[in-house]
Structure formats: C-alpha cells, structure tokens
Design a protein around this nucleic acid. Structure first.
Lengths: 105, 105
DNA sequence: TGGAAACATGGCAATATCGCCATGTTGTGA
DNA sequence: TCACAACATGGCGATATTGCCATGTTTCCA
C-alpha cells in the first residue's frame, strides 16, 4: 500500500483542469496573447457563463491569471510549459495511431 | 466561434485519463518497470477491480499496453514523455505557490 | 443618475466518474 | 477434472462535472 498517494493529488487537479476540450483550446489561444472573456467566448462558441466558469477552473489551479481593466477581464497564461504538455499528448496520439494501424496488417 | 474544437478532444481524453491520483501514481511506477495488476493493486491500495478499471482507462487512450503471461497481466508505459508532463505540473505548482506567498506580503 | 456592457455566480437537470461488491473469464497446478 | 489464483467486467449508489438560464456585481457612458 502506497500511503504517499496524496503526493499525486495536486498534480491530478492540474491535469483535470486541462482535461476539457474548451479549456485546452483556451490555454492554446492564451499562449499567443492575453484575451478577454468576450474574445474567448467567441472562440469557444459556448455561453459566456460557461466560459467564465472554465476560466475560474483554470485560475483555481494556477494555470492562468487575470488582469482587470475597467469592466473587462484579461486572462493570461502563468506557465510556459504547455508546449511540452501538448507535444506529449501529440506523441501519445501518434504512437497509439500507428499501433492501431499495425494491428490491422 | 471556433469550429476546430474537436481538434482538442483527443488531447482532452488523454489529459482526463491522467487526471486521477491513482492513475498518476501507476504511470509514475510504470516509468521504472512493467508491473502486474497485483503489484499495482498493492501500491495503490485500492480494490483490485478498481485498479483494473483504472488500467483499462489508461490503455484506452494508449498510455499503456498489456503483456499477458499466463494468468497475469503486465502493464507497461507506451510513451516516454511523462517526465515533461510531470515537470510541467510541478512548475505550475511551484509558480502558484510562490504567487500565493507573495500575495501574503 | 440610469442603463447598458462585461463578467461572475447561483441554481438546476443531464451526464459522467468513482469505488466497491459480486460475478464472470481464463490460466495453472494437483 | 476441480479448485484456486489473477484479472476483467456488470452493477449500483454516491459524488462530481457540464452547460445553460437567470440573476448578481462592477464599470462606463450618455
């Protein structure tokens, strides 16, 4: 029994925050520049309240931060490691695909 | 509206598969060597059926593969990019921590 | 000052996840 | 062949997630 399991809970929370298509899209967009809730809502194509809640989730785990300017909120990335994250996802996808292709031969 | 959202769904599935403490622990253990379900069950400290289902989730997205030897199943990692993944989680945790510390000053 | 714009936050129903128990399925050894 | 060991798979209640509607809250402008 590994009673050191709690060690992975903080990491799991971050991974869970990233485990939604809309949130991944938003993170990806934020890699280029900070964006307002309205802009992100446009890109995601969901209700404004939905996007706002997604952003709250990303903020909660420290993936993004907010800058308020008047009535608007600009969100920005707080980490610069997303490239590695995305490329890892990509390599898993590619390796799984070639694996499935080989299974058909 | 970004109708390219589906592009992120496959990645989100992988991230979701990684967004559980027990599954992160198992992935971490499998970085060193392949392990049987029984061994992983010992380490995780949950029911055998629970561990088996966790492994099915990891296999479903192509993160691990199975090698059957007699009545036993040995699971192994299919990607070598977990280091990057974990270090990204770690840097988010650290940056968030220092950020909260600064907020207290 | 009143109203609209930009976000945030309840609330709720639909859906998904989680963990265990019970029960399959398959392989092994006597 | 029979019993057991090692996993996998239903099934189920408890809990969490998701997305929208409705409704705050704050800011700006006429």
């Amino acid at each position: 029994m590994n009673n050191n399991l709690q060690k992975y809970e903080a990491r799991a929370k971050i991974a869970k925050a990233m485990s939604h298509p809309s949130r991944l899209l938003m993170l990806d967009l934020l890699q280029k520049q900070e964006l307002s809730v309205g802009q992100l809502t446009q890109e995601v194509g969901a209700d404004q309240s939905t996007v706002s809640k997604h952003l709250a989730i990303l903020k909660e785990v420290g993936l993004v931060s907010v800058r308020k300017e008047g009535a608007m909120s600009f969100y920005q990335l707080k980490c610069n490691c997303l490239d590695g994250f995305f490329s890892c996802m990509e390599s898993v996808l590619v390796s799984d695909l070639t694996c499935r292709q080989n299974a058909l031969k």
